[in-house]
Design a protein around this nucleic acid. Structure first.
Lengths: 335, 335
DNA sequence: CTGAAAGCGCTTACAG
DNA sequence: CTGAAAGCGCTTACAG
């Protein structure tokens, strides 16, 4: 059906070896022969079969990328960064959504191995042991994005989540808040969540403020999640004066619930988020948050992985990218 | 380095053919032999090489998907729908961002062909002629998502953009609005944009309202885009009483600009959007919009394409999925 | 500078 | 029920 290298060879009256050399820009080919081959390619409309090439070369120029859920704003920017860099270096990405589910992660990992991906980008909230084992066994190059490996067995590109969380909590404390609630991820195994909680605790401790378990709420990473959590929180006797939510979507939900109950943000309660969601600066009130350079995280991850594939495995080391506290209207000094 | 089918065969004392039969669940294999092979697979940690298999089978179980930009909320939901269906049928997706750029579209199309994708999903705002030619030449199955081909040469899954736009415009007219501005896509070749403008015009005409060119503004499909366009609009002598923006992000930007100028929405001006962006219902004011079933569009596209790949090409026909007008706070009766 | 041939890791028609 | 062998479409070491 489709035209193959053999057809081009016949058309140009050369061997397939010569056609291959022209295709791969190997210099030893006579200019005239080359021209004949090029004409034959043009004439036949030949397109190389990358699968055949990959089999021979043991290289697919394809990277596997796992993310929890592409429909979450945070990850889309990371993926865009990855793809742009891949485009530069002629790689393509196979994209999979894991929902942070261990089974799906292992399944997709196997798919990446079977489809001979040159490397894997793992974006997510935590790396499970079983997956680490599989990675070690297969020896496939992997880079983590937006999270780190606690033992740094696998290189990563991420913000320092503990420090970022500390910074945000300190900011609230400096504004006079002592009763600060924490809207956590319902997924307790989330490494990123754990790190952020550490930062929150460290900030409290550093200022001699007791950590109160009743101020920590686990919920969904969504607007509705924050909305529901605030409903819970408002049942407390001793209300917090500020809330630190693990993403801006949760923070927005929390704010809307407060408004629904006739409370004002930040006058009655300050609410801070995380990630600097695209719309956060446009909301009323706009949301105080920690910005992560999402696009850069993706781009750097991809560069790092490609560097490993180019044989510079030892030059690669884990990287913290800077986060930034953005103060907006949803938080203020305590009255 | 890695273990191959040959190694498994040696381990199990059978031929590679037998191993292959076990791997592919071909029934004619003796139970005991099968067990021996399975043990050998287990023991050696063998993972099939899908690239080799693809070369032989002329089938990669990989779909190419082109979208304008994964970092735009609308597309992420479509992609998630695609991926979920692909997961069910054991396909994977190679994802590419085209920025609706003709060069990138052609480049990626070639990549999909060379990498032997079984089919292609094209999500976007318009299909250029050159790409249609390439599709025709290559004969690769393609399905369009979120847009249609004006001549229906290629099957698609989409809302009826013209009708949706008509519905929304009619809604504004029924609320007493006669001076309705239209925030259009700056990309004039956008088929989706053209369709929506048709619907807008048809609604105006049907009510005997003259189409006024000065009420149509071209801008970026973003919050900032709407923000800037509203700045322009406010310079008009004869201000519109309502604005219809081609997405909710633009609508939000427009609303914020109005607020900045001390105008109230919807009291001073109604603003409607399109797509029902995740946050639209949570904004103040919440945004009147047309909801598209984005996830379903993606899922149906993928199902359609897979159906074509299964040899039911003739059963496949273009599909309109229902849109839904959602009335919220950003629009109201004219005072 | 060019070609014949081996081989990448699979699947399957054919023969037994 | 099982194996030997051809072939999928490339690349490249080797020979000339």
């Amino acid at each position: 059906m489709s035209v193959k290298i053999k057809d081009v060879a016949r058309e140009a009256n050369v061997s397939v070896a010569t056609v291959s050399r022209v295709l791969n820009n190997i210099p030893l080919v006579n200019e005239e022969t080359k021209k004949r081959v090029l004409d034959a390619i043009e004439k036949t409309g030949y397109k190389p079969n990358a699968i055949a090439r990959s089999l021979k070369m043991q290289k697919t120029n394809t990277l596997g990328i796992m993310i929890p859920d592409i429909s979450q704003a945070f990850y889309t920017n990371v993926v865009r960064g990855v793809e742009d860099v891949c485009n530069i270096y002629d790689y393509n990405i196979i994209l999979c959504n894991t929902d942070s589910d261990a089974q799906k992660e292992l399944k997709y990992f196997n798919v990446f191995i079977e489809k001979q991906c040159d490397g894997i980008l793992f974006i997510g909230k935590s790396l499970k042991d079983e997956l680490i084992n599989q990675i070690a066994i297969s020896k496939i190059p992997v880079v983590l994005g937006a999270l780190t490996d606690s033992e740094d067995r696998i290189p990563s590109v991420s913000i320092d989540n503990e420090q970022a969380s500390y910074d945000l909590t300190m900011h609230l404390i400096e504004n006079g808040h002592k009763r600060i609630a924490f809207f956590d991820d319902e997924d307790e195994t989330s490494f990123v969540g754990i790190e952020r909680k550490k930062g929150y605790k460290r900030a409290l401790e550093s200022q001699g403020i007791a950590y109160r378990k009743e101020y920590v709420f686990d919920g969904k990473y969504s607007i509705k999640g924050g909305f529901d959590l605030m409903e819970e929180l408002l049942k407390l006797e001793d209300l917090p004066t500020a809330v630190f939510a693990l993403n801006d979507e949760m923070a927005l939900g929390a704010i809307r619930k407060l408004e629904e109950k006739g409370l004002k943000v930040p006058q009655d309660m300050s609410v801070a988020g995380f990630n600097n969601f695209t719309v956060s600066e446009w909301l009323t009130p706009s949301i105080t948050t920690i910005a992560q350079p999402m696009y850069d995280i993706g781009a750097l991850c991809a560069r790092m992985l490609i560097k490993m594939l180019d044989g510079h495995k030892d030059e690669v080391k884990s990287l913290y990218v800077p986060h930034k506290l953005i103060e907006r209207e949803s938080t203020s000094d305590i009255k």
